[in-house]
Design a protein around this nucleic acid. Sequence first.
DNA 1: CTTAGTCTTGACCATACGGTCAGGAAACGA
DNA 2: TCGTTTCCTGACCGTATGGTCAAGACTAAG
Lengths: 215, 215
Amino acid sequence: MNPNAQVSRISKGKRTEIRRENERVILDAAEKVFAEAGYGGATMQLIADMAGLPKANLHYYFPTKEALYRQVVRNIFEIWLHAADTFDEAPGPVEGIGGYIEAKMAISRRHPFGSKVWASEVMHGAPVIQDYLETTLREWTAGRMAVIQRWVDEGKMAPVDPRHLLYMLWAMTQHYADFGHQIETLNGGRPLSDAQWREATETVKAVILRGIGVV
Amino acid sequence: MNPNAQVSRISKGKRTEIRRENERVILDAAEKVFAEAGYGGATMQLIADMAGLPKANLHYYFPTKEALYRQVVRNIFEIWLHAADTFDEAPGPVEGIGGYIEAKMAISRRHPFGSKVWASEVMHGAPVIQDYLETTLREWTAGRMAVIQRWVDEGKMAPVDPRHLLYMLWAMTQHYADFGHQIETLNGGRPLSDAQWREATETVKAVILRGIGVV
DNA sequence: CTTAGTCTTGACCATACGGTCAGGAAACGA
DNA sequence: TCGTTTCCTGACCGTATGGTCAAGACTAAG
């Protein structure tokens, strides 16, 4: 193999590659630090250390702490939204809601920091993403509520208030990320194993699906 | 009436009364500020302003910010624990779990700030109350799990994993406090009315009780 | 009234934080 | 090769924060 061969990844020049990579490293570090210390408790120095970059370099890519934070929150919001594709294509509540629970539990496991940042943001009154709550999230919620209501009207599930059912789904699935430390402590200080995650997901699915009158 | 009569409230001297009252005012203000800004984002000056006292006076009653925070978290933990008295005296899951849901929903409505402080503390790795998690909470959890398991063994409810059922209960009820801002935004910017709180509580109860095979 | 103990508070201090900047290094295009 | 743009970073700055302190005001007991 030719050692001078171009790297396999498509790179539009080293400049853009460096920028992309550094922004990614910074965002990853920021997500973790914001999650663990909160917005007020997080410092640019901490994020810089975790990213392995000098602090001034962070300000080169993100002008202010708030701008960096905004980007972190936006990224999480995107993941959140795309998690519910299962909802739309499902023929009924068993596949739709069951699949949604599985998807959100998977996200809680894979992106616990993001979930915590989101929770913090909302708990503090959503100073950064209030507009998103009032537009995108509101529309998204209305759409899923309509789907659930249609299932109810078609007799496919018990007549459960769609809004509060959605809140219950959010609460339970995100709990495993946001309160992961508590769950871990109650698990003898060890993170949940693969089997325990499956058990958690199955329990939530079983109780909810039975609770809305399917299965 | 004698204008010089002793005030009705039992007061062991004005000194103790002043101390008690000031500590209460400070703790109330601190709970709110810690909930809204997080530990790192909260400042002693903010708490002082909200309490209507000079900052130096706060340090007279609570030596450090961390000591004040500790006391706030401890107070919430106490409320948390006593919420489950319904659990022990109940003859079965309908009264036990149904009553627990009602009690925790009531707490979420009455103490939203406390719930948020607790959530923040746990999300940040429980730096202050880790010992409580490992002792008191662990024992408490084991006790309730035993009760639920007994109900399962007696055939009073479906065979649901007690641990994850408890997590589900915590998640759903606390969600209404911790994510109250999001719920309020999705409610047209208005807080939930009495009727809406009742509706939320009833929906949660209905889904869970049906979900564990009672009713 | 006197004295001792408790409460109050403005002024102050050391530190840590977010953010700036100038100047050098590296990549790029011609 | 050379000029231009992008990237990098140590040193620096103004501000805000947690915490201290000393001096005074108030309460209580003898």
